[in-house]
Amino acid sequence: MPTPLQPIGVFDSGYGGLTILRELVGKLPQYDYVYLGDNARTPYGTRSFETVYQYTLECVQHLFDRGCRLVILACNTASAKALRNIQQLDLPKMDGPNRRVLGVIRPTTEVIGTYSRTGQVGVLGTRGTVTSESYVVEIEKFFPELRVFQEACPMWVPLVENGEYDNPGADYFVRQHIDRLLGKSPGIDTILLACTHYPLLLGKIRQYTPIGTTILSQGRIVADSLADYLLRHPELEVECSKHGQRAFLTTDSPADFDRQATVFYGEPIQSMHLAL
């Protein structure tokens, strides 16, 4: 009998986490992955902490039920609003083998200070991520000398998901929030894109930031962090199946998901519907 798959689970409220998955596959192609996008209930960025926590927990539990031992919350809002509760309250109560849930905030905050020369960094994110203060708190742990300035960009995710990220109409909203962020301090020399949708706006973001500004997307940082994590936890690594297989799930229309996902993932995919 074939050994059941034990893929690495990757969760996002929609499509943005596919930019993380793309980097994970590029760095660690031997592993099996299953991606779950909760497109039927997106966006998470404007929802309450309790709602994001409940939605995220449901999706994490489904990925565990599919055999995952390790789940990556490839969503800044879920990482900010749900990760701590899931790690501290839910995982200890779950039956079965050892399971882990990781987010995208800590890997980024562990390294962000190494990119800044001025000691001043900017964070662009959804309203939920910014309001949570998660980046401010976590950066303080690793780089207490850094000054952190945040800017919520509520229109950026809709622009990306409606295919407007490369059109002239996006320029107003991109420039507006870049100007607001940089207006908080002229010394900002490093900007973190604290939403997995934002890499699709990278071309326009660069147009409105000063030459020499470092702009960080999270995908490669998270991939490097996962590779290191698996090296440090061989007891978990050995349980992750390695056939190079990919599976994609969406809580909304698979046809719509497949059409949009190609933009984020970089190649065609075929998803299945999941009813929660």
Rank of each mutant, 00 (worst) to 15 (best):
Ala80Lys: 01
Leu146Pro: 11
Asp224Ala: 11
His197Met: 08
Ile191Lys: 05
Gly203Phe: 02
Ala152Leu: 07
Tyr31Ser: 00
Pro107Thr: 08
Gly125Trp: 03
Ile20Ser: 02
Phe49Tyr: 14
Val238Tyr: 03
Ile221Leu: 12
Arg220Cys: 05
Pro92Asp: 12
Leu201Asn: 06
Leu231Ile: 12
Asp95Cys: 09
Thr262Glu: 15
Gly219Trp: 04
Thr108Trp: 01
Pro92Cys: 11
Ser116Thr: 15
Gln120His: 15
His273Thr: 14
Leu70Cys: 07
Asn85Glu: 15
Lys81Trp: 04
Thr129Ala: 07
Arg117Ala: 14
Phe143Pro: 10
Glu50Gly: 00
Pro268His: 12
Cys68Gln: 04
His273Ile: 14
Leu274His: 15
Asn98Gln: 15
Gln207His: 11
Ala40Asn: 12
Leu24Val: 07
Tyr31Gly: 00
Thr126Tyr: 04
Asp38Asn: 08
Gly17Asp: 04
Gly17Trp: 03
His177Arg: 13
Asp90Phe: 04
Ala78Tyr: 04
Leu201Asp: 06
Leu202Val: 05
Val34Trp: 02
Val34Phe: 03
Gly113Phe: 10
Leu181Thr: 04
Thr77Val: 07
Asp32Phe: 03
Thr108Lys: 00
Leu230Cys: 07
Met94Phe: 14
Leu276Trp: 13
Leu146Arg: 08
Arg127Lys: 13
Gly122Ser: 09
Phe142Asn: 07
Gly113Trp: 09
Gly187Cys: 06
Gln30Arg: 10
Thr19Met: 07
Met1His: 01
Glu151Pro: 03
Ser132Val: 10
Arg84Cys: 10
Pro199His: 05
Arg180Asp: 08
Asp90Met: 09
Ile215Cys: 04
Pro144Val: 11
Leu226Glu: 00
Leu83Ser: 05
Gln245Val: 02
Lys204Gln: 15
Arg127His: 03
Tyr265Asn: 10
Leu63Trp: 02
Gln270Leu: 14
Arg127Phe: 00
Thr126Asn: 05
Arg180Cys: 08
Tyr33Leu: 02
Phe11Ile: 04
Ala40Asp: 10
Gln270Phe: 10
Ile191Thr: 08
His273Tyr: 13
Glu235Leu: 09
Leu57Asn: 07
Asp179Ser: 14
Gly163Glu: 12
Gly37Phe: 10
Met1Arg: 00
Gln6Pro: 00
Met272Tyr: 09
Asp65Met: 06
Glu151Trp: 01
Arg147Ser: 14
Tyr135Glu: 06
Asn39Val: 02
Thr77Trp: 01
Glu267Lys: 15
Thr118Leu: 10
Gln270Val: 14
Asp224Cys: 02
Pro4His: 03
Pro154Ser: 12
Leu70Met: 11
Pro254Met: 11
Pro144Glu: 09
Leu21Ser: 04
Tyr15Gly: 01
Pro234His: 03
Phe11Met: 08
Val121Gly: 06
Lys93Met: 13
Leu5Val: 00
Thr114Asp: 13
Pro7Ala: 01
His273Gln: 15
Cys240Trp: 00
Ser241Leu: 03
Pro43Leu: 05
Leu192Ile: 12
Ala78Asp: 11
Gly212Lys: 09
Arg259Pro: 00
Thr51Val: 15
Glu164Gly: 03
Gln260Cys: 11
Ala82Asn: 10
Tyr265Ala: 11
Tyr53Ile: 01
Asp252Gln: 10
Thr109Ala: 14
Thr190Ala: 07
Gly67Leu: 03
Asp256Trp: 05
Val130Asn: 01
Lys141Ile: 13
Arg84His: 14
Val101Thr: 10
Pro43Met: 07
Val71Lys: 02
Glu235Gly: 12
Ile139Arg: 02
Ser271Asp: 12
Pro4Tyr: 00
Asn167Val: 13
Arg84Met: 11
Gln218Lys: 00
Gln120Thr: 13
